[in-house]
Computed example of a mutant assay.
Amino acid sequence: MNRVMVIGVSAGVGKSTFARALGKLTKIGVTHLDRLYWKSGWVEAPAEEFSSAQREIVKRDQWIIEGNYTSTIDIREPHADTVIYLELPLRVCLYRVVKRRIQYHGKTREDLTEGCPEKIDWAFIKFILTTYGRRKRKMLERMQRYANEGKTVHYLKSSAQIQGFLSTFSKGEVR
């Protein structure tokens, strides 16, 4: 496990938190795609800049890249040897999105660019609600394809599975 994609079914599933923990346990550097995509003030990075940054990262021998951004996933896919997919229930994802909005009110999370204070709006909630089911189906197909391509795939569907996976590293087991 040297080049790891951490993806998930939805915002709030825990991709950033998981990737940070995995990075600490494995000593592999973590890149949060939100930090590359969003510039201060919630301004989107130009598409070529966002893509170019990813092309540079995947040249490294080791990396953990966290985030879905399926419009550029083709940059990461061929280089990844491991894919970790997080899928928690919709209600958990929504709860976590609201919780982090309260927790980080007026502050910027560490997985975002400075100057992007936590926010939530109806459009974001609606996006989560209306895309969850479709994304779940598409991600399952994607995970099956990755496995067929010979990538190591970890499909973690509960908080217990996520914690169990991380605990294997703290016990010294190698995956």
Rank of each mutant, 00 (worst) to 15 (best):
C93M: 07
C93V: 11
C93R: 06
Y95V: 02
Y95G: 06
Y95F: 14
R96P: 01
R96M: 00
R96S: 00
V97D: 02
V98H: 00
K99P: 00
R100M: 07
R100K: 07
R101L: 11
R101P: 00
R101G: 12
I102L: 12
I102T: 03
I102G: 00
Q103W: 05
Q103P: 02
Q103I: 05
Y104L: 04
Y104C: 00
Y104Q: 02
Y104N: 02
H105M: 15
G106H: 06
G106C: 09
K107C: 01
T108R: 02
T108Y: 02
R109F: 03
E110S: 14
D111M: 06
L112I: 00
T113Y: 02
T113E: 14
E114Y: 05
E114S: 15
C116K: 09
C116R: 08
C116W: 08
C116S: 10
P117K: 06
P117H: 04
K119S: 12
K119E: 12
K119F: 11
I120Q: 04
I120A: 04
D121C: 11
A123S: 14
A123L: 12
F124C: 10
I125E: 06
K126G: 01
K126H: 13
K126M: 05
K126W: 10
K126C: 06
K126V: 03
I128K: 09
I128H: 08
L129F: 06
L129Q: 08
L129E: 04
T130Q: 14
T130W: 10
T130V: 14
T131E: 08
T131C: 05
Y132T: 06
G133L: 10
G133T: 12
R134I: 11
R135M: 09
R135D: 07
R135Y: 07
R135P: 05
K136V: 02
K136G: 03
R137D: 13
R137K: 15
R137M: 12
R137I: 15
R137T: 14
R137H: 10
R137E: 15
K138V: 07
K138W: 11
K138Y: 11
M139R: 08
M139Y: 13
